[in-house]
């Protein structure tokens, strides 16, 4: 298919003896939507943190567009177009919604002037449907709107790869459909998307490929429908006993 944009090789990160990310290798192709799932504590957010340089990797490499970026700092990742949203949203609470997005544009997106950044920010707010609250302080937003703001902010950085860390957590099913629709529209613009979720069903519909993480390691990878049938995946999510029972039921 098309060219590779992000490649992780044997990436590892430990915290005080616990291997939060354990020998993870992964490759993303330009323009695809990949789901990264795994139970709570599987190391999904840590993996994103290692990729973007929040935590330095203990071992392994990250290549972005052919360049070794393993040692980058978070702001460098953002400027390169390797962007992410936060599971726990991180707005600038006193800034207006517009200025939150403008910050992404002017620093991450290399827009030369603040004025242009605000214009671009306004377009993006329209894209995510926040144009009516543009002048409100970010701290006044509701949770679904904060998630959208987070999305608009990352888009302002002109991402090439966008890692969405649980953008759907805490949303109702109707709101999730809206968010997924938005994600598809972003992907249509040629942005590679890694969608990180704790709930499997959210990503199944939208992802072309799914990677399953458990206890820091990749335990399965492939098309959505194959992955959900994988025994190890069921075991990781439901526990070995339940997996055993399920197996007996379906086969016996």
């Amino acid at each position: 298919m098309s060219e590779e944009i992000l490649r992780l090789e044997s990436l590892s990160k430990s915290f005080g003896g616990i291997r939060a990310v354990n020998d993870v290798s992964l490759s993303l192709k330009k323009g695809e939507i990949v789901g990264l799932i795994g139970p709570n504590g599987a190391g999904k957010t840590t993996l994103v943190n290692v990729i973007t340089g929040v935590h330095p990797a203990d071992a392994g490499t990250v290549h972005f567009m052919g360049e070794n970026v393993t040692r980058q700092r978070p702001y460098q990742a953002a400027r390169r177009g390797l962007c992410r949203t936060f599971q726990i949203v991180q707005p600038f609470p006193e800034n207006s919604v517009l200025d939150n997005v403008a910050a992404g544009a002017v620093f991450g997106g290399a827009v030369p002037s603040l004025k242009q950044a605000r214009e671009r920010a306004m377009d993006l707010l329209e894209f995510v449907g926040l144009q009516d609250v543009a002048s409100q302080p970010a701290s006044a937003l509701t949770l679904p709107n904060r998630k959208r703001l987070e999305l608009a902010k990352s888009l302002a950085m002109k991402p090439k790869v966008l890692m969405l860390d649980e953008v759907n957590a805490g949303l109702s099913s109707g709101e999730i459909d809206g968010a997924l629709d938005l994600i598809r529209r972003i992907a249509e613009q040629g942005v590679t998307i890694l969608i990180i979720e704790h709930l499997m069903k959210v990503v199944l519909g939208v992802s072309e490929r799914i990677v399953v993480l458990d206890r820091g390691a990749v335990i399965a990878e492939g098309p959505p429908m194959e992955v959900v049938k994988d025994e190890r995946v069921i075991e990781a999510y439901l526990g070995s006993k339940y997996a055993q029972r399920l197996k007996e039921k379906t086969h016996g």
Binding site: P74, A78, Q90, P91, P93, E94, N95, A103, F107
Partner: peptide, 15 residues
């Protein structure tokens, strides 16, 4: 101004 409000987020938007 962004750093004052949230330094981690400031780092993440490319500052």
């Amino acid at each position: 101004h962004c750093i004052r409000q949230n330094e981690d987020a400031a780092d993440m938007v490319g500052i």
